[in-house]
Amino acid sequence: MTSATAPTINVRVTAVLQKVTGGQKTVEASGSTVSEVFNDIDARYPGFKAQVYGPDGKLHRFVNIYLNDEDIRYTGGVETALKAGDTLDVLPALAGGC
């Protein structure tokens, strides 16, 4: 649960996630950490977290998340602290080939 003072974060999503966000390429969400932001998005767009987390509750291995162009794997993962005006890019890897 996010507090009333949680910062507003811009979250950009690819076409795969736009199916969940009603076609929106960017959504605003509140939260002090990446995890809180994802909880906020999932509350408004049910199914969002299922696209980025596995059944074990951990991020899918092939989902890349960048905070202001920096991979969150190196900044604390989903517990990375956020501040107002930050931008998250959520990029699920696409499968392809023959």
Rank of each mutant, 00 (worst) to 15 (best):
A4P: 00
A6F: 01
T8A: 04
T8D: 06
V11H: 03
V11E: 01
T14R: 00
A15P: 05
V16M: 12
V16H: 04
V20Q: 02
T21C: 08
T21W: 05
T21N: 08
G23Y: 08
K25D: 09
V27P: 06
V27Q: 02
A29H: 02
G31F: 04
G31C: 09
S32N: 12
E36W: 06
V37I: 11
V37N: 06
V37K: 07
V37S: 07
V37Q: 07
N39E: 12
D40K: 00
D40W: 01
I41A: 04
D42C: 04
R44Q: 10
G47W: 10
F48C: 03
K49P: 08
A50P: 12
Y53V: 00
D56R: 10
G57L: 10
L59R: 09
F62C: 15
F62M: 15
V63F: 15
N64I: 07
I65M: 12
I65C: 08
E70G: 01
D71Y: 06
I72N: 04
Y74H: 11
G77H: 03
V78H: 09
V78S: 03
T80Y: 00
A84Y: 14
D86H: 15
D86Y: 12
D86R: 13
D86M: 13
V90K: 05
L94K: 10
L94V: 15
A95I: 08
A95Q: 10
C98W: 09
